[in-house]
């Protein structure tokens, strides 16, 4: 069997990836609720918005980074040898998840860059950005977490 980068660490990396993704999902859900609250005029939520913006930025980078590390193993052992042959729908679902979460990356980075010093009372002009970025990120991360669970139930490592 050919050896692929980080083959021996695939399982712990998958667990770490899943833990970071679940934490990210929780933080994004809180942030989406805060975003809707800000749109509805609840300007006292500024502190929570700043905390979750930083948390989401850090968790997204961790989850994404660990995913990048385990990708070569997935590409050959999981997708190349198994999913593409026996479960092509799961292979396609993974690529949807992978690309949609890559599209979410700039939103997480923007939320971190802008949100960590965001004060809704002083900067009402930024509230629509904040709300839309939070909701888009929540939708993409939710899709990623659910599809990740489905794919792992077919074949994880």
């Amino acid at each position: 069997m050919p050896h692929v980068f980080l083959d021996g660490y695939a399982k712990p990396l998958l667990v770490l990836h899943a833990l970071a993704a679940f934490a990210l999902f929780g933080a994004c859900t809180h942030q989406a609720v805060i975003g809707v609250g800000l749109l509805r005029g609840r300007l006292h939520l500024g502190r929570q918005a700043r905390i979750y913006a930083q948390l989401i930025g850090a968790l997204f980078v961790v989850a994404f980074g660990v995913g990048l590390l385990m990708y070569p193993h997935y590409r050959y052992h999981v997708r190349g040898l198994f999913l593409d042959r026996y479960e092509p729908w799961a292979s396609n679902l993974f690529d949807m998840k992978e690309n949609l979460l890559a599209l979410a990356l700039p939103f997480a980075l923007c939320l971190f860059a802008i949100g960590r010093r965001f004060d809704p009372r002083e900067e009402p002009v930024l509230i629509p950005f904040f709300a839309f970025a939070s909701l888009a990120l929540w939708a993409l991360v939710t899709f990623g977490v659910i599809s990740g669970l489905v794919i792992t139930s077919v074949r994880g490592v």
Partner: peptide
């Protein structure tokens, strides 16, 4: 991706 046929 909805209609892709991957090559194993």
């Amino acid at each position: 991706l909805a209609s892709r046929r991957p090559i194993a």
